[in-house]
């Protein structure tokens, strides 16, 4: 092999970059999210699978309908009426931002812009 030093250095850099997640993870430990729900109600407005993957779509659709179109009709689940509102609807059951929202959002590294407009609710525990 010619230019052994240079080639091996290059390959070492390549392997270090490609295996980045492996050695980066080795130092830290994974924190699998455990969002906390404080409620007696069993069902959310939509099935669990839908809420897990697409709650942001629901929230933004609600925002558009309520805020922009002025349509404040409530949603009914199991005979209970819920306001289509983040603070008065969702957060009735999902009380804590840090213990519910942030659990997963921090885990997957997303920063939704809900709190650009909404007040961050006081944490009472």
């Amino acid at each position: 092999m010619y230019d052994k030093g240079k080639v091996l250095t290059g390959l070492a850099i390549f392997v270090i970059i490609v295996t980045f997640p492996i050695w980066y993870n080795a130092s830290g430990s994974e924190h699998y999210p455990n969002p906390k729900i404080l409620t007696k109600v069993k069902d959310c407005v939509m099935p669990l699978a839908y809420m897990r993957s697409s709650h942001m779509k629901l929230l933004v659709d609600w925002r558009d309908e309520v805020l922009r179109d002025g349509n404040r009709t409530k949603v009914t689940v199991d005979g209970v009426k819920y306001q289509r509102s983040l603070q008065d609807g969702c957060m009735y059951c999902h009380k804590s931002k840090t213990k519910f929202c942030d659990e997963c959002h921090k885990y997957v590294g997303t920063e939704p812009y809900c709190w650009d407009c909404h007040f961050v609710p006081k944490e009472t525990d």
Partner: peptide, 18 residues
């Protein structure tokens, strides 16, 4: 067609930590 990101990440982190 959105996915369950949390469990996908759990799999991916698992892959990276064997």
């Amino acid at each position: 067609d959105r996915v369950d990101v949390v469990n996908i990440k759990h799999l991916a982190v698992g892959l990276a930590s064997f």
